[in-house]
């Protein structure tokens, strides 16, 4: 299971990196989302993979490590905030620069006024 899980983390990260390196804002935002999925799963796995052992006292005899979970929980919320911010930033940039390239310059058209 660990090997498969690690592969999934690696694939998510690789997909995230590839998309982050694209030239248009929307794929970059999607890439950031995938990248944060990868990172969250990576952090979460540092508490090891346990089945049916939630970190709730009384629920299981050998509860899993709650600390990475607490870390990842806040990380999820923060990355949501970041995604929202980047989305709006991309919108604003697209409206003001009249293109959605990350450099603010569309390589395909001569946008100069």
């Amino acid at each position: 299971m660990e090997a498969l899980y690690a592969t999934a983390v690696g694939v998510l990260t690789a997909c995230g990196i590839y998309l982050v390196l694209r030239g248009r804002t929307f794929p970059v935002i999607m890439g950031l989302t995938l990248l944060s999925h990868g990172v969250n799963l990576f952090l979460f796995a540092s508490g090891r993979l346990a089945l049916a052992a939630p970190a709730v006292i009384g629920e299981s005899a050998d509860p899993t490590d709650p600390l990475p979970q607490a870390l990842v929980l806040t990380a999820i919320v923060i990355s949501f905030a970041m995604t929202a911010f980047v989305v709006v930033l991309a919108l604003r940039a697209a409206v003001e620069l009249r293109n959605d390239h990350v450099d603010g310059v569309d390589p395909e058209e001569d946008w100069r006024p």
Binding site: T7, L12, S46, G47, D65
Partner: peptide
Amino acid sequence: GVAALGGLGIGLVSFAIMTRPHSTIA
């Protein structure tokens, strides 16, 4: 290439961590 290297690195590190004995402050 960059993405593959990055993904490979993270995946391997994750694997290495998960297969090591778990010492925690939990």
